Simulated assay, not measured.
Amino acid sequence: MAGVHRLGSFAAVLIATLVWAAPSLSAELIMLEQPGCVWCKRWNEEIGVVYPKTAEGRIAPLRRIDISGPWPDDLSDVARERLTPTFVLVEDGVEVGRLRGYPGEHFFWPLLSDMLEKLPGKGS
C-alpha cells in the first residue's frame, strides 16, 4: 500500500496527542534534496503525496531545501549535508533529529515518530 502507513495504537494516540496539545508548535521537517536524486523521487512518490495530510505533517510541516543552492540563513545552526534525501527535524531553528537517506515507507514512519518524540516538552 504505497503512501499509507500503519502505526501501533500507542503511537497513533501519541501523535494525536501531540497534534492536539501543541497547535502552535514551530517544528519543521526539513528535506534536504538535490536534482536527480532517485531516492528523493521515491520518497516523493511514496510519502510526499500523503505527508501534508498526516498527523506528522501537521506537527512538523515539510520544508524542502535544495542542497545545490544557497543555505537558508535561518538554518545557520543546522549542519549541511551531502547525502540526499536527509530529513532534519528542527524546532525554532534548532536541530532535534536527523534521518540520513530514505529507508522505504515501512521504516520511514517509525523513524520519524521517534524523532517527533524528541521535540522539547513532547518526549516520554
Rank of each mutant, 00 (worst) to 15 (best):
G121I: 13
T54G: 15
G97N: 07
A12L: 13
I30M: 09
L119E: 04
G36E: 04
L116R: 04
V90H: 09
K53H: 10
G8A: 08
Q34H: 06
L112Y: 12
V49Y: 00
V88H: 07
A22R: 12
E45F: 00
Q34W: 03
G69W: 07
C40K: 07
G69M: 10
Q34P: 00
K53Y: 02
V88I: 10
P35F: 05
L62S: 05
A2T: 04
A11F: 03
E28P: 02
S26Y: 01
V13T: 07
D73C: 05
E45V: 11
E33Y: 11
R82F: 08
Y51Q: 15
D77N: 12
T17N: 13
F108K: 09
S24G: 14
G121S: 15
G69H: 12
W39G: 02
E33K: 14
Y102S: 10
S24Y: 08
M1Y: 02
M115V: 12
I47M: 05
G97T: 01
D73W: 08
G69Y: 09
P110T: 14
H5Q: 14
E28G: 03
E56V: 05
V90A: 13
P103S: 02
P70S: 06
W109Q: 07
E46F: 01
E105P: 04
M115L: 15
A27D: 07
W71R: 03
G97Q: 08
T84R: 11
G101M: 01
R82A: 05
D73Y: 13
V90S: 06
V96H: 15
M1K: 06
G57N: 08
I65M: 11
R98K: 01
D114Y: 10
W20A: 12
K118F: 04
G8Q: 13
L62Y: 00
L32N: 09
S26G: 11
E117V: 14
V4G: 04
P70G: 02
H106N: 11
P52M: 06
N44D: 08
P85G: 02
E28K: 13
L116Y: 06
L32A: 08
P35N: 05
V13K: 14
L83K: 12
A12S: 10
F10L: 13
I67Y: 03
L25S: 15
D66W: 07
A21W: 09
V50A: 03
G48Q: 10
V96S: 12
R100Y: 04
A60P: 15
T54H: 13
L14N: 00
I47A: 06
E95V: 02
L112H: 13
V38K: 01
P110S: 13
V50E: 07
A27T: 14
D73N: 10
A11G: 06
D77V: 09
